[in-house]
Write a protein that binds this DNA or RNA. Structure first.
Length: 376
RNA sequence: GGGGAAGUCGCAUAGUGGCAAUUGCAACAGACUGUAAAUCUGUCCUCUUCGGAGUUCAGUGGUUCGAGUCCACUCUUCCCCA
């Protein structure tokens, strides 16, 4: 895997680049739709390709390990073949489930013991085991197993947690480097910078991760309960240390405004459930603000969802129709809303990239940032 | 014409002497950030300074300290027999 850094914005840390993988090139900055269990919820793969124009999507180690399970994935020839997706993929390690399923897991030096959220059965994730599983899934980018502590963690806990994450990273790297891809294409391992809201821990973690000389780096443990301005300052601290010529991936973020702020601070890759989940729950993102399509005021708005969208469903269907579909709990409503939000997210990062290449990213960002998150 | 059953806040329901009154749906609004989420939360008789206050259970009258609940009549709906 190779990363070509094309341009850095003269007025900020924003960068435009291309990440080359065996499954294709990824222009950066990029947003990666989340497809936890081998499906971007409510969005068909052909829509991801043709309407959304997703360049890379996510899968989740924990969820795919539980279902369909490793035997099936191995027999299928990996996740790409299993789900019919020939473009790049990235797998999260289950580190986020250490956080989100905190009630159902136990952490030790050795690893993490989960109680399955599906049937309550017990499963052990060690760094080595997670590397083996991610090899079987076969994503182009594999994430290290980390602990994602809550954004409200105190220094004592954050420091202790970071130590564990770093020791786990070394074990991930040892296992990763001593194993081969199973399906003939290259896989990369990204370390994850942690350190909660403490600049000294973030710095220490960024230096530790950078010293491992990998093909890309992730920033984790943000947008998990800490104030947004703290998140931004943590990104600045970390990106000042991570190598310029490698991609930086901000995990789990975020709102359209979060993306622009993070791009300005030098982030190249993003993923978030927000466009799909909020879409299913009736919230649409647009350049002019957010729309709660369930609100009565859209009942008779017979304007296209977005007349200029590359997605046909945005051009053909009206807000009134989508209002009706979502109110009536029709599955088509979930699809149209999800496609709309993902298309918007991909357009947003594409626009950001064009302005970085053009050299006026900061002005453009300033001109859209206030409108983008207001409520229409 | 005779006999029986029933009327509760948009709809459907609970309630058989202490009730502004259960639950579901609908409606209206809010939340959602590496997905245990097509989920969750709030409001939902009127007014409110959020402490309360005022009017309610088909209608009228009555019994009772107190009635959605008991009694009488009226109205309406449904079922059965002619």
């Amino acid at each position: 895997m190779q990363f070509d850094l094309l341009t850095t914005d003269p007025h900020s840390s924003a960068r435009a680049g291309v990440l080359h993988t065996d499954h294709g090139d990824i222009p950066t900055p990029i947003f990666m739709p989340v497809g936890t269990v081998g499906s971007v919820k409510a969005v068909h793969q052909s829509e991801l390709r043709n309407s959304v124009n997703a360049k890379i999507i996510l899968g989740n180690t924990y969820h795919l390990y539980l279902r369909p399970g490793l035997d099936i994935l191995r027999q299928a020839g990996g996740l790409h073949k299993f789900i019919g997706w020939e473009r790049p993929m990235l797998t999260d390690s289950g580190g986020f489930q250490v956080f989100s399923l905190a009630a159902n897991r136990k952490l030790t030096e050795e690893g993490c013991t989960f109680r399955s959220h599906i049937d309550g059965s017990k499963h052990v994730f060690t760094p080595e085991r997670v590397m083996d599983i991610e090899r079987i899934i076969g994503a182009d980018i594999m994430m290290a197993l980390d602990e994602c502590p809550p954004g409200t963690s105190d220094f004592q806990y954050a420091k202790k947690s970071l130590g564990l994450t770093h020791r786990w990273l070394e074990r991930c790297i040892a296992r990763f480097d001593s194993t081969e891809p199973l399906y003939g294409h290259h896989q990369s391992l990204f370390p994850i910078v942690q350190g909660c809201t403490f600049p000294e821990l973030r710095r220490q973690s960024a230096e530790f991760c950078a010293s491992k000389d990998r093909e890309g780096y992730a920033i984790g443990g943000l947008a998990v309960g800490e104030p947004t301005d703290i998140m931004y300052s943590m990104i600045e601290v970390v990106n000042a240390i991570l190598p310029q010529h490698k991609p930086r991936y901000l995990m789990g973020v975020g709102t359209p405004a979060n993306l622009l702020e993070a791009i300005e601070r030098g982030v190249d890759m993003f993923d978030c459930v927000m466009p799909t989940r909020n879409g299913r729950n009736g919230l649409l993102f647009t350049l002019h603000g957010t729309i709660n399509i369930k609100n009565k005021k859209w009942e008779t708005c017979f304007e296209p969802i977005d007349p200029d969208s590359p997605a046909e469903s945005d051009r053909v269907y009206t807000l009134a129709y989508l209002h009706h579909l979502i109110k009536a709990e029709e599955l088509l409503g979930l699809q149209i809303a999800s496609i709309h939000n993902l298309t918007f997210y991909l357009q947003l990062v594409t626009m950001a990239r064009e302005h970085i290449l053009k050299g006026d990213f900061s002005q453009w960002k300033a001109s859209v940032i206030t409108d983008i998150m207001r409520r229409i």
